[in-house]
Design a protein around this nucleic acid. Structure first.
Lengths: 214, 214
DNA sequence: TAGATTGTTAATCGATTAACAATC
DNA sequence: TAGATTGTTAATCGATTAACAATC
């Protein structure tokens, strides 16, 4: 199994398209057809499918849509839930808390923590905001797998260390710094504002090299 | 100039670190030191800097922190504002509307549009939510550069077409589909839930190949 | 001067794409 | 059968990393 980061990022697009096809009553689909809809290379689609699919495609026929859907769902973990807590309920943190779609994608944000007494004690979309001091006790009492860091960069390393001390093994890091962690810990650095650089580049004076990015 | 997508995504991390150094009173910095802090390759840092910096580094000394900061800010467009409207004020849309930090990163979301009469007419963080029918008229009256699509996938292509008809040249697409656009249009596909696939993989039964991702 | 650090050219690595034989 | 479509091996492409000469 050699599911690269790029492939994992492509899977949700496959899934969305396959669900759309299923709704239209399509039962089998060729890699070429998927590739064309998603503007990907045909061989890449076949390789991606080979990595996640439980059944092989049939020449002249293609792949069974239903099987592909459940294979991708299983691979992406949409049929289970990973538990998470979020540290830093500022605007980025709140943005994640109000996102009611995450459970559909396998993520269950259980609670949030902050130091701002204006928001501590309140609730956002049924997610309670606790004082940061309560972090360790909460983690003792609850099985949490993922820590989501949406605090300012200058507090992020401290928070990360505390999360790891609580036994958390994976960090979804929205702070713009590179966290120092043992190598058995998974850190995914999310960089939403990084995208804005593309638009800035594009709208600079002479935008000659316009093209699609993803 | 050959600023790749990867390099653009790294720049905000450089910037954050350089600002931190400036606050500590550091005036010059070597590529090696930046590389070490950000866990990047030293040559990569030098190449990235070469692409954005207005002045050369000095052997034995490094680069002037202040210059690097303003060069990166200029390159990322943090000293200007691009105007945007957002279509689809569901939870993902609202998440972006409440993010008051975007103007610091060069993005000014002027207004939102939706079809849901429960939210049309209301305001989120001073951003008015208009009915979707008003889109064309609004774009006539206001200079808008970027369309942010946070609607469900099955409406995204229609919305995209309408935005392009309004003269919008860049799309920040959060819908999980590949939009069909002329090649002079910039589309950046954001895939936040795609990240969740990494965590699912990691927490599957035998997670042997644990490592950092970004 | 000596050597830390730069900038650049060459090598490596990994992902994508092309070519093609296998098969339903 | 014929040919559309698969799966795989080889080639390409681009980004990262290593090697090294230049220089303050």
């Amino acid at each position: 199994m050699d599911l690269t980061a790029q492939a994992i990022k492509r899977l949700p697009y496959y899934l969305q398209h396959l669900r759309f096809l299923r709704e239209k009553g399509v039962e089998t689909i060729s890699a070429a057809s998927i590739a064309s809809a998603l503007k990907l290379n045909e061989v890449q689609v076949r390789k991606d499918i080979a990595l996640v699919s439980s059944c092989k495609g049939k020449p002249r026929v293609g792949f069974p849509v239903n099987n592909l859907i459940s294979d991708i769902e299983a691979c992406l973990g949409y049929n289970r839930l990973n538990t998470a807590i979020l540290i830093g309920a500022g605007c980025m943190g709140q943005a994640l808390l109000i996102n009611t779609a995450f459970p559909k994608y396998g993520l269950d944000i259980k609670a949030a923590f902050d130091i701002n007494s204006d928001i501590v004690g309140s609730t956002i979309c049924d997610k309670h905001i606790y004082p940061l001091e309560y972090l360790e006790e909460y983690c003792d009492k609850n099985e949490i797998q993922i820590g989501i860091i949406t605090s300012p960069a200058n507090t992020a390393q401290d928070i990360c260390d505390r999360l790891l001390a609580c036994g958390i093994k994976a960090i979804w890091n929205f702070a713009l710094l590179t966290l120092d962690v043992p190598e058995d810990i998974l850190v995914y650095n999310e960089n939403l504002v990084g995208t804005l650089g593309f638009f800035s580049q594009y709208f600079k004076e002479d935008n000659t090299n316009r093209e699609n990015r993803s």
